[in-house]
Design a protein around this nucleic acid. Structure first.
Length: 450
DNA sequence: GCTCTTACTTAGGAGAAAATTC
DNA sequence: GAATTTTCTCCTAAGTAAGAGC
């Protein structure tokens, strides 16, 4: 392993900053804004996630001749590298990207866009949460409607209603169609196949249990058993009649059809709004339930993480168990054992000091006694903290909290929770997150309700 | 309808950097 | 001050969804 020593590291950091200064920002409507991905993607071997049919293909080097630049007419067009030309220079102010190219593996377009801290991204983000909040007003009616549709004469309507129920209740993704054999075999709600669900008339004391087992986005496994209403169950049986395992469960449904329908129920409503809505709603409800004023700062933080965790579980945000997890838990246990031993010792000292004080009744012995008591208290606090830490860690080993925090939870909920319970915002959001959610930090008081 | 293109958000992992422990 | 652990940043793949054109 190559290890960089002091000076070399400093220089590397300086070079990085220089690069960021020179290429990492753009002027948008007169304001300097950070760009997100300003470096072109280097060539290499494509891996992809899961069993990807294109794994191992060579990802070509992108040349200036592949790159389209998008900037305003009156701006200084960035110079291509010596001896090269850009593919095109465009002045399109209806889109937000600054440069784009087509990548050769999947033939997808790639874009250079602004950092999440930018005004343009922040406004979009805010809008997203406002749409989700709007759904709150409509959701009861929509739920009543899809429940009614479970009995529709039209099979298409029934399928739509059952799919929407899953999207709402289980926070499944929409599930766009994908080209066979071009990508890993993953599905979402509308693209579920019969092989992905098992129906149990009864299981573990519950009736009408649906067992889901499929690979979702990024080939992350979704496994869930859930008791559903009889009508849903019966419908699923009908949908699966005379079908093979590889046939579509919802053969009369597509994301386009579903979203068209949703659009008719509420302006701006699409399948993914349900995920945002249910995630944010769950956070708020869990925070209310789990926080109270007698909690220490550490306990409040644990409460927040637990609320966050409920959302991550709902959205199936997983991560690989960290390699050293087992070892780390053992270390923690050992620390706790040591602490217990110290506490035992300290208790003895307190007892002795108390006896001494009783015997002598002097100021000196009283002080001694007080000191011993304080140090015992300190040890007990430390143990408590270790215990909370261990619990948090174990509960969290295969759950990724970051994704929901970044993409699904209305930041105003977190901000107002912090204000209400007097928790510094820095405990919840790091610097990057605070920049991204600046709009919310400025906006939300302690009484904000999602 | 259906396919293709485009533009944007959402996702987990790797490695760097920072914090903590020894 | 070195080693270890935790947190953050970067990277870019993999989704969603709208619109054009037939």
């Amino acid at each position: 392993m190559i290890k960089l020593v002091g000076r070399c590291r400093v220089r590397l950091k300086e070079e990085k900053e220089l690069l960021q200064k020179e290429y990492g920002q753009a002027i948008i409507d007169g304001h300097k804004e950070k760009i997100g991905n300003f470096k072109i993607e280097p060539p290499g071997l494509f891996r992809g996630r899961g069993t990807h049919p294109k794994m191992g293909k060579i990802k070509r080097r992108i040349m200036p001749e592949d790159v389209v630049i998008n900037c305003s007419k009156d701006s200084k067009v960035p110079k291509p590298p010596e001896g090269h030309k850009w593919k095109e220079i465009r002045h399109d102010n209806t889109v937000t990207w600054l440069a784009s190219w087509t990548e050769n593996i999947m033939n997808n377009m790639k874009y250079v866009m602004l950092n999440p801290s930018s005004k343009i991204k922040g406004e979009k983000d805010w809008q997203k949460y406002e749409t989700a909040r709007k759904l709150k007003k409509y959701v009861d009616k929509i739920r009543a409607t899809y429940r009614g549709d479970w009995k529709s004469k039209e099979m298409k309507v029934r399928q739509r209603a059952v799919a929407l129920y899953f999207i709402d209740k289980l926070a499944l993704r929409a599930g766009n169609e994908k080209e066979d054999n071009e990508t890993a075999d993953t599905v979402g709600c509308c693209s579920l196949r019969c092989e992905h669900v098992k129906l149990h008339d009864s299981l573990d004391g519950q009736d009408y249990v649906v067992e889901f087992d499929f690979l979702g986005k990024d080939s992350i496994r979704y496994y869930n058993r859930i008791a559903v209403e009889k009508r849903v169950f019966k419908n699923l049986k009908i949908f699966m009649e005379n079908k093979g395992p590889e046939d579509d469960l919802f053969d009369r449904l597509s994301t386009t059809i579903l979203n068209k329908h949703l659009q008719s129920l509420m302006d701006g409503l699409t399948a993914k709004v349900f995920r945002t809505y249910n995630a944010s709603f769950t956070l708020q409800q869990q925070l209310d339930e789990l926080t109270n004023e007698n909690m220490s700062p550490a306990e409040k933080l644990l409460a927040y993480n637990r609320a966050n965790r409920q959302v991550a579980i709902l959205c199936n945000h997983q991560r690989a168990v960290p390699k050293s997890h087992e070892q780390q838990m053992e270390n923690l246990q050992k620390k706790m054992d040591d602490k217990e031993a110290q506490i035992k010792e300290a208790k003895k000292l307190v007892k002795d000091a108390k006896a001494d004080y009783k015997a002598h009744q002097s100021e000196k012995y009283r002080k001694m006694y007080e000191r011993k008591k304080a140090s015992l208290q300190r040890l007990e606090d430390q143990l408590q903290k270790l215990k909370l830490h261990a619990t948090d860690k174990e509960e969290n080993k295969e759950i990724a909290l970051g994704t929901s925090k970044l993409n699904y939870l209305d930041p105003r909920i977190s901000v107002s929770w912090c204000r209400k319970w007097n928790v510094p915002i820095e405990k919840i959001y790091n610097k990057t997150l605070r920049q991204k959610f600046r709009w919310a930090i400025e906006m939300a008081g302690p009484d904000f309700v999602f």
